[in-house]
């Protein structure tokens, strides 16, 4: 196993170009488990923790651009107000030790359907910035996940950052696990209300081969809110509509039975999570209006 340790972003991209087989490592919360448990012996690893550029965040044309190496702890502390859904999800990641080390970039790189950052990135329509020695591109997160633990990256690319608009309305994240802390999602759900554009964003975790958006549910609920003029004058939403929203979220999932739960339970739980998180988000909208 070869250990590559670039200190600048340019150097990192050059190394990746020269060693396309190299496995990137940042916080190590996924990669190290693979190595410690002897599940993987990559020919090379490329350590990104010395690349200062990856730890920066800033704004760019009204979007937040957050370096792939920003940890969950920093997202909670530094970006909690602007990315509340992602911050809520970050709080559920592992333990303080894991949140101090794990990064959203790493989550995207592993592309696990259970990655906690994915549902809020989906619900808020984030972009993933990929870079290689020959240039960079931005991929909508909704097109980024292409299969179980597979993403749209080419093997000469690294994840530079994700870009997302600061919150445009109430956001929620909710995750089912069979322990009250430090648990991998049995299933999870994120919702983001974009009050200005009158859009409802969703993200489903751990209930399909990839993280998913519940597009029918989004359109349905946006329509309900629109038709009744509720975006402008927030009032009670018909409980039947909320229930239908839950059903549509459940229908969007493609879960399987596995060691963490059954497919049937995941669908059931997603409907509950969707109803509850929508209700909490809508309550917040009503309070703030």
């Amino acid at each position: 196993m070869e250990f590559l340790q670039p200190t600048t972003w340019t150097e990192a991209l050059e190394m990746k170009a020269a060693h396309p087989e190299a496995l990137p490592i940042a916080g190590g919360t996924d990669v190290m488990v693979e190595i410690n448990f002897d599940r993987q012996r990559p020919a090379a690893v490329i350590d990104l923790t010395k690349v200062a550029e990856l730890e920066e965040w800033g704004t760019e044309n009204g979007m937040l651009r957050v370096g792939a190496g920003v940890t969950y702890s920093r997202i909670i502390e530094e970006l909690g107000g602007r990315l509340p859904g992602l911050a809520m999800a970050s709080r559920t990641v592992g333990s303080p030790q894991i949140r101090n080390r794990g990064t959203v970039g790493g989550n995207l790189g592993s592309a696990s359907p259970a990655g906690d950052a994915h549902p809020p990135l989906l619900s808020s329509g984030a972009l993933v910035e990929l870079a290689s020695a020959s240039g960079s591109r931005r991929v909508p997160v909704r097109e980024f996940f292409v299969g179980p633990k597979r993403n749209a990256m080419r093997n000469d690319e690294l994840i530079a950052a994700f870009l997302v608009e600061p919150t445009r309305g109430p956001e929620q994240f909710s995750k089912v696990g069979t322990r009250n802390a430090m648990v991998i999602a049995v299933c999870s759900f994120a919702i983001a209300l974009d009050v200005e554009r009158k859009r409802v964003g969703t993200g489903i975790g751990s209930a399909g081969p990839t993280p998913l958006a519940a597009i029918d549910a989004e359109e349905f609920m946006a329509g309900v809110l629109d038709e009744s003029g509720l975006w402008e004058r927030p009032a009670d939403v018909d409980p039947n509509a909320v229930a239908r929203f839950g059903e549509l979220v459940a229908a969007a999932a493609r879960p399987i039975d596995d060691v963490r739960g059954t497919a049937a339970y995941r669908r059931h739980a997603l409907a509950v999570l969707a109803r509850r998180t929508f209700t909490w988000a809508w309550d917040e909208r009503r309070r703030s209006a």
């Binding site: 250990f3 340790q5 490592i25 916080g27 190590g28 919360t29 990669v31 190290m32 488990v33 190595i35 410690n36 690893v45 350590d47 923790t49 702890s73 303080p96 030790q97 894991i98 101090n100 080390r101």
Partner: peptide
């Protein structure tokens, strides 16, 4: 690790350089 609480098992030795 640099003042942050982490699990040493999840840090690759070389990352401690």
């Amino acid at each position: 690790l640099d003042g942050k609480l982490v699990c040493a098992c999840l840090v690759l030795g070389g990352q401690a350089e």
